[in-house]
């Protein structure tokens, strides 16, 4: 009777689940199961599993599944998220204030590295995408305008569309996916590894040390990249124009006549705001990520999604404002 039995883990798991179920049903006088008849090895495993009573474990809050509970929970999540975002933005502004008064401490090297990462290293992708956007706009425009024999106006169309909207928009979306993700992943893994806590206990302000160089880099680089993207797009349009019979010189003069300084500065002004929301949004996702590596992935995804969404929402707000102001 004391023999060893042959079984896999499903048997003790099944027994344990049943014992637990009985214990939970009668909490005031829990039964003391007798294992006398069982094979030794099974008995030993069950005794081991039952050795630590479940009582000492912290109880997780009951997960009520009623709809009202869920709604309340959702409201709380939205509310706390909103508060956290406002607080983060405020902290960033304070940090900028400290930068102006010269009290912000961060490593200059970090700033230059980030600048390089979100500037020079983003050039190839920005060139490619903007060039192709210019090509696409020119093709679509050409088909329609040729109906009126007015295909020289392709230059106007591409020029205005690029400098007002598409140049800055494409740059912002590329930077959200590229740099926003990089910021969130880097800060998120620093958070998970307690590196941000370590900064704090050495008397560094994590905002000054980590967020500030990233914000500054994007504020500097976004306008420059936008201007560059505008040129790349116009070049793409010019190429299409050449193939449909518009000489490049003519195309260029037509573009210059169509694109006013106001129109082109609008795009550049918007790019500064886009840079700010990409940097603040993705740094926030990183710094407020959970303490695990899984949380880093979630933070990165959230950073990209929120950055792209807020860029587009902000752009429509700008469009409404500019229309109202007749710019």
């Amino acid at each position: 009777m004391d023999a060893h039995a042959c079984f896999d883990s499903t048997l003790p798991a099944f027994l344990l689940a049943h014992i637990r179920a009985v214990t939970d049903a009668t909490p005031d006088k829990p039964p003391s199961p007798a294992f006398d008849g069982l094979p030794v090895n099974l008995r030993a495993l069950l005794e081991l599993a039952l050795a630590v009573s479940e009582e000492s474990e912290p109880q997780t809050p009951s997960d009520s599944s009623s709809e009202i509970y869920k709604l309340g929970n959702l409201t709380l999540v939205v509310w706390t998220n909103g508060k956290a975002l406002v607080k983060f933005t405020g902290e960033t502004m304070l940090s900028l204030g400290r930068l102006v008064t010269g009290r912000a401490i961060f490593r200059r090297k970090d700033f230059w590295l980030t600048l390089q990462e979100c500037g020079v290293q983003a050039l190839p992708i920005v060139s490619l995408i903007s060039f192709l956007i210019g090509v696409i706009l020119a093709f679509v425009g050409n088909v329609q305008l040729a109906n009126f024999g007015a295909n020289l106006f392709v230059a106007d169309l591409v020029g205005i569309a690029m400098v007002r909207e598409m140049g800055v928009m494409m740059t912002a979306i590329i930077m959200s996916g590229r740099t926003g993700a990089a910021f969130a992943a880097h800060l998120g893994s620093m958070k998970a590894n307690e590196e941000i806590d370590a900064l704090r206990t050495f008397g560094f302000n994590p905002f000054d040390f980590l967020v500030l160089p990233r914000l500054l880099s994007l504020l500097v680089m976004m306008p420059l990249l936008t201007i560059y993207a505008n040129f790349a797009g116009i070049l793409g349009g010019m190429l299409v124009g050449y193939f449909v019979g518009i000489p490049p010189v003519l195309y260029w003069t037509e573009t210059l006549a169509a694109v006013t300084l106001t129109a082109s500065s609008l795009g550049v002004i918007k790019s500064v705001f886009f840079g700010a929301i990409i940097a603040i949004g993705s740094c926030r996702q990183g710094m407020q990520a959970g303490n695990s590596t899984a949380a880093v992935g979630q933070a990165t995804t959230r950073a990209v999604v929120t950055a792209i969404t807020s860029v587009i929402v902000l752009d429509s707000a700008f469009a409404a404002i500019f229309t109202l102001l007749h710019i």
Partner: peptide, 12 residues
């Protein structure tokens, strides 16, 4: 203070 964290927390 000087603090050493359980995970080391060196700046990577």
């Amino acid at each position: 203070f000087g603090v050493m964290y359980q995970s080391g927390a060196l700046w990577s």
